[in-house]
Design a protein around this nucleic acid. Structure first.
Length: 402
DNA sequence: GACTCCCGCCAAAAG
DNA sequence: CTTTTGGCGGGAGTC
């Protein structure tokens, strides 16, 4: 029985909102929006949370708590980020923040490694500017797969040295998201292809073992990686010019505006999709849900985002990045912002009070929503809860809830 | 219907 | 043993 009002996630599906109709939502209706739970959004939030002065250590529990997601999702993001040097594993449950400035070096290392391992596509013919299944079967014999652990434990992989690993461990490592991420990057860095579709990448990275199940799984993982990379603007999704099938183009990490630590992910976080502006919410489940409150377009904050999103102009992006400063960092809540929180939380590193706010938010915060519909929804849930409390739990005294 | 990819189960690894 | 890590693929959401 779920009586908790899961209302801090944005509703984003198009259509009329419950608020607009003035109707209360049925209690079975949730506010699930898949897009707001994507790894890309999570990655953006993660980067915004930790990309600031004074951050050195990242605790996974801390991250999961602050970002409002399960640990499992943090592992995904962190593993991918680790592969491009943004974070490095320090100890159990602990990563150190290296920042975006570590990316160029990591990419360089990956490229070197890739070239050494023959991660190039020279045997595909120089004209092969586009990597796709239809036109270069011959390219698929490229063995992008890492052959052994010597290459697997690359310099950019800060995982602690493992003693001669048993086969199962090695097998596991070979299939790791981190390694797949690095190999995916190498695919771009060491080849002269412009666009790579995920199926092609999967086929190339799988080598011989490309049965359909393995392919499907590999592609799933590549989608995960692509989402994270897209949110960082390392790659961009573009339809293949001929087949119109989706493919990815490497954008790389140029020294944007000469800025040493360009926080592009912060500014371009919305490019991939119509992201919500809230912290990814862990309590919203996708099962049996329907987000009827909806509003990706009625939110002024998001409208601005939409405008930004339309601009694919890199110069503009670059300029925006250069004009941003640390002071503006932080979460920007959408219309569902709890009243008691500032619109943009300033993450002063030493702020005890702020730490307290974050730490206790999840457990103690009673949301007071700006949005009337959500206030109504919340009180609706509270009514239901009271009813349950008195009837089912047999309590006559109702605790103060608001 | 194909594409996308969230979600959480559960096994391996680590402590 | 418990906890952390993360591979994996079902199936829901989106196009």
């Amino acid at each position: 029985m779920e009586l908790v009002a899961n209302v801090d996630g944005p509703a984003c599906r198009d259509g009329a909102s419950a608020a607009g109709s003035g109707e209360l939502l049925d209690s079975r209706q949730h506010l699930y929006c898949r897009k707001d739970k994507s790894l890309g959004v999570l990655c953006s939030n993660f980067l915004r949370l930790y990309n600031r002065d004074g951050v050195e250590v990242i605790g996974l529990d801390d991250a999961a708590l602050k970002l409002g997601v399960e640990r499992r999702r943090i592992y995904d993001v962190v593993n991918i980020l680790e592969s491009v040097g943004v974070v490095a594993r320090k100890a159990k449950n602990q990563y150190s923040w290296k920042g975006f400035r570590a990316i160029p070096k990591a990419l360089e290392v990956l490229k070197e490694e890739g070239l050494r391992e023959n991660f190039n596509s020279s045997n595909c013919g120089d004209s092969a500017k586009v990597f796709n299944d239809t036109e270069n079967e011959g390219c698929l014999d490229l063995k992008f797969e890492m052959q052994d652990n010597s290459s697997a434990s690359s310099k950019s992989d800060n995982r602690k040295e493992r003693s001669p690993a048993p086969l199962s461990a090695e097998n596991r490592r070979e299939k790791s998201l981190a390694l797949l991420t690095q190999n995916f990057v190498k695919l771009f860095l060491c080849s002269n292809v412009d666009l790579i579709s995920l199926d092609t990448a999967a086929a190339a990275l799988l080598g011989d073992n490309n049965n359909s199940t393995a392919m499907r799984t590999k592609i799933r993982r590549l989608y995960d990686i692509a989402n994270v990379f897209s949110s960082m603007n390392l790659i961009e999704k573009t339809p293949h010019p001929e087949t119109r099938k989706p493919a990815f183009r490497w954008l790389g990490w140029s020294e944007k505006c000469g800025n040493t630590d360009a926080n592009s992910s912060e500014l371009n976080q919305y490019r991939k999709r119509l992201f919500g502006t809230e912290i990814t919410n862990q309590t919203l489940k996708r099962s049996k849900v329907d987000s009827s409150i909806n509003t990706k377009s009625c939110d002024p904050v998001k409208k601005v985002v939409l405008v930004k999103q339309d601009s694919e102009n890199k110069h503009e992006r670059c300029e925006q990045e250069c004009h941003s400063d640390n002071g503006s960092r932080g979460y920007v809540y959408g219309p569902f912002a709890p009243v008691c929180l500032p619109k943009a939380v300033n993450f002063a590193p030493k702020s005890v009070k702020q730490d307290y706010d974050w730490e206790t938010l999840a457990s103690t915060h009673r949301p007071q929503y700006h949005n009337q519909a959500l206030r109504d929804l919340f009180s609706h849930y509270m009514e239901a809860w009271k009813l349950w409390y008195t009837e089912v739990a047999g309590n006559t005294k109702i605790p103060q809830v608001s």
